[in-house]
Design a protein around this nucleic acid. Structure first.
Lengths: 156, 156
DNA sequence: ACTATATAGTTTGATATCGAACGAAAAGGA
DNA sequence: TCCTTTTCGTTCGATATCAAACTATATAGT
């Protein structure tokens, strides 16, 4: 062999592996969000639920801009999501007293209740997931997925 | 502790784990397909590329119905995707001689070339993925993801 | 203090997708 | 053979999302 090939851009095999990996992830994403959305009450979409869930878990009063970034959607998309939630009476959006450009998003009591209803409705679905993979496998998966997510997020 | 709690429907913790898992997967799916679509040539969408790639790897002559099922999209969605590809001259769609309801999808030479162009264009992106996770980690991830995917697919 | 640049949120137009309804063709049952 | 049910592909209306343009406000540089 005339010269070192260690610096070849990529293993033929690795390319296929990457492909397969993102393909599986894409399909799981699609199937799981469809299944989840199907059981959600109050006509909630997954995007809307995510806002309620974030507010309940991380506290409310965040700006739309920060939330849009956290959920990986454009500001325009989030404006729309927020308007839907406001129409349903699940969030309240107030001007930020400290910054004339910003607003602040708060959950209403109805919003908190809607989130709880959603969790209850999703119970039977969630209860069945361990048929597919064990909690141990989930725990094993997470760190690698998080690293991949973080890298994609930093490099977009 | 008054009585055995082993039969509680689900560990409090497991619910959170499931949530986190699908959340990571959803975000990875979104970020990766956005990144991939950005580099695709010929105005190809990811959906369109997937059709070309399937044809090149698995052979062509499949019916739209089977392809739609394989890609997890509705028949209506796939009709649209196919029309885009036909307009670009990347596929040819012919009536099935054996079944009057069906059609058959074939790649054109231009379609095969477009797929190769896409692979070349995606090279630099793919080459960087190992910065995030090693091929070994990818191989470790795949079986579990495949099992999860298969279960979701069978239970929708 | 002025100007230029950056950021927040909205609006608009385009697009990918879905679910449901449809007509045509095939398969199955009586 | 006739009737019913399934399958195939298309169409239609609705929706979630994006990118880009826009206004208003804030920040930074000179």
């Amino acid at each position: 062999m005339p010269f070192e090939e260690s610096y070849v851009a990529q293993d033929e095999n690795t390319g296929a592996l990457i492909f397969q990996l993102f393909n599986e992830i894409g399909i799981i994403s699609q199937l799981s969000s469809t299944a989840f959305e199907r059981v959600l009450p109050h006509g909630l979409t997954q995007a809307q639920f995510t806002v309620l869930n974030h507010g309940a878990r991380m506290g409310d009063g965040w700006t739309p801009a920060r939330l849009a970034a956290a959920f990986q959607v454009t500001k325009g998309t989030f404006t729309s999501t927020l308007q839907k939630l406001e129409t349903k009476g699940f969030v309240r959006v107030e001007p930020d007293p400290d910054d004339g450009r910003s607003k602040r998003v708060f959950l209403t009591d109805a919003g908190r209740k809607a989130r709880e209803d959603a969790l209850i409705a999703a119970g039977p679905l969630f209860a069945r997931v361990p048929e597919a993979i064990t909690p141990e496998q989930m725990k094993a998966l997470l760190p690698t997925l998080q690293k991949l997510r973080a890298w994609l997020d930093n490099n977009r």
